[in-house]
Amino acid sequence: MAKAEEYIKKDHQLFEETVVNNEEISPGVFLLSVKRVHDFKPGQVVKLAVDQVQPPRIYSICSGNSDEELRILFNIKDDGYLTPRLAGLIPGDKVLLSAPYGSFVGNKKPAWWIATGTGIAPFYSMFQSGLAGNKMLIHGASYLNQFYFEDELDWAMDKNYQRCCSREQSCDVFPGRVTDYLENRSELPRTAQYYLCGKAIMVVEVRDLLIRKGVPYENIIAEIYF
C-alpha cells in the first residue's frame, strides 16, 4: 500500500510548463494538458502548482505514457487555493510541474482497478498505456455525470467495466456504492492484484472488505487522496 509519507517527504523540483489545453469535461471537472517532457510509468503522479505562494499538490497522471501531452484530471474545490486557479487557465498560461514519480504503477498482471470520482485518473492512464488486458475496472460516483471517459471505457472493456452510482439510477449502472457491489460478489479472485484509488475512507473500507473476503493483504495496492 502506498503511504502518504512517500509523497509528502520527498522534495521534487518544479519546472515551468505551458498549458496546451484545459477542458471542462463535466461540471466543475477539468482535464488540464501540458506537453509531455518526461517519461513516466502509468499510475505515477506529479506535483502541480500555479505559483510559489502555496505548496504544490499531488495529482495522478491521466494520459497514456506514449501520448504527446501529459494530462491532469481535477475537480474544483470551492474553498481551495489551487483548483479554482487551475480552472481559469487557458492555453499559453504557465504552471509549475514536477517530474513524474511514485510506486502506484500498473503492469500486465491480472488485476482489479477500483476507483471513486477523479480517482479514475491513474487507471485511465493505465488503460491508455495498453494495460487493460486481464483487468476489471470498477468506478464509483455519486451522480451519473461523474463517470469520466465512460463511453471509451465501456466500448473497450465491455463487461470488465462496472459503474456504481449511489445517488442516481440507470439501467446499466449498479445502484449503490463500490463497497455494495463488492459485498454482493459471491467471491473475488484471490490471486489478482487490487488497485484502489480514492478518498481514504473508501480505500480503508474496500481494503478491509477485500481482506475479509480472502484477498491477501499483499495483493492490495492503494493510492489515497490527500
Rank of each mutant, 00 (worst) to 15 (best):
V204P: 00
R185A: 13
K10N: 10
T18H: 06
Q193N: 13
L31K: 13
C62M: 08
V34D: 07
G130L: 07
D172F: 07
P110W: 07
E16R: 12
F74N: 06
I61D: 09
R163E: 02
Q146T: 05
T191M: 08
Y217A: 12
T118I: 10
Q44L: 06
W113K: 00
L86S: 09
A192W: 14
S186V: 14
K3C: 09
C164Q: 05
V29D: 00
I138A: 05
D67N: 14
Y59V: 11
G102E: 10
V50C: 09
P55Q: 07
R167F: 06
L48Y: 03
F40M: 09
Q146S: 08
K135Y: 04
E205W: 02
Y143V: 14
P55G: 01
E68Q: 15
D180G: 03
Y59K: 08
S33F: 01
A141H: 03
Y195F: 15
K199A: 10
T83C: 04
D208R: 14
C164Y: 08
A156E: 15
M157I: 00
A141T: 11
E152R: 11
N184P: 02
A2V: 13
Q146G: 01
R167E: 09
M136A: 04
P216E: 04
C197E: 01
E69T: 14
I201N: 13
S66R: 12
G88D: 15
D11V: 14
N219G: 02
C62A: 15
P91H: 05
L188K: 00
V20N: 05
F226S: 13
S103P: 12
A200I: 13
P100N: 09
D172G: 02
V20E: 12
E23H: 11
V20R: 11
F174P: 03
K47C: 09
R163T: 08
M136H: 12
I120M: 03
Y7T: 14
G106T: 01
Y59A: 07
H12T: 14
E183Y: 13
I201P: 00
